[in-house]
Write a protein that binds this DNA or RNA. Structure first.
Lengths: 333, 333
DNA sequence: AGTAATGAATGAAACGTTTCATTCAAAATT
DNA sequence: AATTTTGAATGAAACGTTTCATTCATTACT
């Protein structure tokens, strides 16, 4: 039989109410008792029954996560941060991928299932583009991650600056400059604009050096590895070496790296590549990249959402993380 | 205040227990009373409180849906069918996209969150490839959709036959034959094999006509529109007209259609295309395609899962739908 | 030292269902 | 007509929490 709050109370030698207080971070419990309770919880492997909590408190202890459907590792990291923070507060999360506009229409109804939760995390999504009227159809707290809106709490990385860092770095090298970006034209509702921002920063760096980025040096593709591979192959065929490429995310950069391998050219001298994200395998690949603190962003967003859920009504939070350039062998040593 | 079961009971003039029986499809309630209760439910807009149900019954009234992350419309339709059926039984669903191997590892733990639900729907996924030991790590019922395994209830479409239909149809036309398929090589765990099956059927049709499909006529790409577009452009440039193309899903076929438009050639005479799925816009596009009953598949799978949840222990269900060729202008009239 | 104010802990009631032993009514059997 | 069986409906108990009015113990103030 799974342990209940009663078992915890008995083992800790306190009352039901005290255990409940500990679970809910109520400050009116003596540190000594709190410790006893936490020890008992750990010892029994106790986890509160979410249904009982919900029934009694009329809260759900659930947060809904909306995200555009993209298969990037990025989300795996982001969720790691989010889930970590939520589970500390004994919360759970439910994911709602926006497969299609149809699904989006469903979620324009304030009674839709995802809004039964205590709060909503909007990932890489912008309410103004997503919903008519420009706001999420719920009274529950909403926090944006990897996106920014003036009307909502927002946690994101300074993408413009990140692009700028990439540009600055590549300009130290000899050779022509190319950009491989992701097009969000086909699905304006689901566009977060981050790739556009990275491009702006990149172009700013060029402009400061008195350079411009001709259209022929810009490639806008889907978010997949094979597309980047194909496009990179094309660049390598027609450009004069050396070539410097900024890919707006590491998945694309990886496609470029593979194309370089295939071509027999040397990465870091003939062809230099800068990515964006710094995923797990980026280091192994020796990929120079703009690192964003993905896990940390997830944590921060979850923290803010939890605060709002328990009633924090301070003015809008806006947390902008600074990305950092990580130099590796893909741009020489 | 939201109506509770008490309000329903009062309005219907029966006891609490009777209403509960109706909610749970217990047959020991007189049709007359059942009607009264259902009327009261409709009149009040009553929905059972899932938390209370769960607490009392030790069930969750939730099913978990696992799926590989792909952004196809296909899933939107499938969920339509699934959700429709589930909501009839007052059940809800939760989606767990398999973003990464990391996530898959989490789900190899029988205590992972998704297994807290009453049952699992595995979409386009094969347990043998997914999990060590070849089975889903839970005692709860599991049903596969858009995939088939000898160990689990399976609901799917006869993809081999579908490919065969496409092949037969294209062979009635003059000209060379090409195949654009989706490569699942990069992620063997998440491969469902459907595209491979469609290809097999397609090749079978060719073989019956004494033809073979040379490697140079096969293109394996990612699942995105732009990739198909690029590949189709390539085919159109180097092949001699007329050209007959089978794309293993409508998203890819759409890429081909766009490439044809761009090239100035005529769809249906210079270039003929057959897709697979029959999505909403396929008809508008005049796309000849192999229709699979997606919504119906979703419904069927949900129905079986619900039966299993309430204790049905009949031998393994295997439901194979027959796909159907829908001829439109993309292959001439 | 006596009283008031504060800080913590308590435990009973409530949350909205399911479940199941019990009751009641009707039908079937003797 | 009396008895047994069957079919439905009932309502109290249970599920595991939160909440909150109350109590108890301590500290601070006259």
């Amino acid at each position: 039989m799974k342990p209940s709050i009663k078992d915890v109370a008995r083992l800790a030698g306190v009352s039901l109410g005290t255990v409940s207080k500990v679970l809910n971070n109520n400050p009116t419990v003596k540190p000594e008792n709190r410790m006893k309770v936490l020890r008992a919880i750990a010892q029994l492997g106790y986890r509160p029954n979410p249904f009982a909590r919900s029934l009694a408190s009329n809260k759900t202890y659930m947060v809904s996560i909306f995200l555009p459907i993209m298969s990037s590792e990025f989300y795996a990291y982001l969720f790691e941060g989010i889930d970590d923070e939520l589970s500390n507060a004994w919360y759970d999360s439910s994911i709602y991928p926006l497969f299609s506009k149809r699904r989006l229409v469903d979620y324009s109804n304030p009674n839709a299932f995802p809004y039964q939760s205590d709060g909503v995390l909007l990932v890489s999504l912008i309410p103004e583009k997503l919903f008519e009227g420009g706001h999420v159809p719920t009274k529950k707290p909403v926090v944006l991650v990897d996106a920014c809106s003036k009307k909502y709490d927002s946690v994101y990385v300074d993408n413009v600056y990140g692009g700028y860092l990439a540009g600055k770095h590549l300009l130290e090298k000899r050779g022509e400059v190319f950009l491989i970006s992701i097009s969000e034209k086909g699905k304006p509702e689901f566009a977060s604009g981050v790739f556009e921002q990275r491009r702006r920063g990149f172009e700013k760096a060029l402009k400061e050096a008195g350079l411009a980025l001709p259209n022929s040096h810009v490639f806008e593709i889907g978010e997949s590895f094979p597309e980047a591979f194909t496009v990179a192959r094309e660049i390598l065929q027609r450009a004069t070496l050396p070539v410097n490429i900024f890919a707006v995310c590491d998945t694309l950069a990886m496609g470029v790296v593979e194309a370089v391998k295939e071509s027999g050219l040397t990465l870091g001298t003939d062809v230099r590549v800068v990515g964006f994200d710094d995923l797990k395998w980026s280091e192994k690949l020796g990929l120079t990249t703009v690192r964003q603190p993905i896990v940390e962003m997830g944590k921060k967003a979850a923290t803010i959402l939890l605060k709002r859920i328990v009633g924090d009504d301070s003015p809008r939070y806006e947390v902008r993380f600074k990305p950092k350039l990580i130099v590796r062998s893909s741009t020489g040593r």
